[in-house]
Computed example of a mutant assay.
Amino acid sequence: MAEADDNSPIRRFIQNHPLNLAIISSLSGMLKSIIALPIQHPLDTLKVNYQIQNKLKNEFEVIKHIHAERGGVKGFYYGYMANQSKQIFKASYRYPLLSCLPRFYAGLFGSKYEDHKYAMRILTSFSLAIIEATLITPFERLQVFLMTSKFGDSNYRDFFDMIKTKARKELFKGYSPYILKQCVSWTIFLQADQFYKYRIRNLFKIPDEKMITGWKLGICSLLTSFTTVLSVMPFDNIKTYLQKHNIELKDGSRVKTNENQFTVRNAIKGIYAKRGIRGFYVGWRVRICVNFINSSFTVVLLEWIENQAHGL
């Protein structure tokens, strides 16, 4: 995104009313999700299946497994619509919260946002984690269920049959590790984003009112992504273990797996028993690729929004 002109229409629109910043942030975030998802979703499918397929040793074996078991290339796009709905929904509130909450907290405490960015971003991290985990866990449950299912035509029916009697329990399966993951993820991401951008600005003498661009912003994205992935991978693997497909075929009938198997404690024990400590980092290479795509878009978009809203 190009560096903003002081009198650009978007900047004037944002400066005209505080609510306008939320509107621009939401629309920009939803557009970003639509553009990025066709690239991101196959990598998500690869990551999720790698995390639960204990017999597969590397990403290439997982790719062959998905291709063979899911009918070719289309197998990498199972759960695409659920993921698309989730991503657009997330973007619709995520970017307004990322841009507006730090300024809201600064005003609440009677301070200036530009002078307390790290502290305001910590408060934003925890607020966003609680909101996001509550809103998104049901979408995540459906998405992971579909990505790891074995039956094809009856996947959605299986899911809705499964949640009929215990909707809240089934839809929020994986909530605990997810909210922990989101707290860690957003805290690390927002602090790393601010830290690396601050260092780049100091190193290349870029003033606060100017936008970081080009390869310098790319370095920020890469470092932020790598730092975040290493922090959240264990929580992500536990969440996926709890949310995976748990309908089995027994005597020709579909039956739900014993739900007592799907607890955080059993997830940790199961992952460790299969692969040891490295089991919590299964798929880290794919995760870095997925996160780098997300991080690149998010870091650039946040920098652009910050540039447009500078001084607000």
Rank of each mutant, 00 (worst) to 15 (best):
R121S: 15
A91M: 01
D161I: 05
S99Y: 10
L135Y: 03
M120V: 10
A106D: 09
K150L: 13
Q143N: 09
C100H: 07
R121C: 10
R121I: 02
K166V: 04
A106T: 10
I131E: 00
T124E: 15
R121K: 15
A129N: 06
R94I: 02
L108C: 04
I131R: 00
S176E: 02
V144Y: 13
R141Y: 01
A91E: 06
C100Y: 06
H116E: 12
G110W: 04
P96G: 10
P177E: 05
G107T: 07
M120H: 11
R168D: 04
T134V: 03
A106R: 09
K164Y: 08
Y105G: 01
I136S: 14
K117E: 14
E114I: 08
D153G: 07
P177S: 06
M120K: 08
V144Q: 08
L171T: 06
L128I: 15
Y95L: 14
P138S: 11
K173M: 14
D158F: 02
L98R: 01
Y178W: 10
G152L: 11
S92G: 05
Q143L: 05
S99V: 03
Q182P: 02
K150T: 15
Q143H: 05
N155V: 06
L123S: 13
P177I: 09
N155Q: 12
I122D: 04
F109C: 12
L142P: 03
Q143G: 02
M162C: 09
R94C: 04
K173L: 13
D161R: 08
E140T: 13
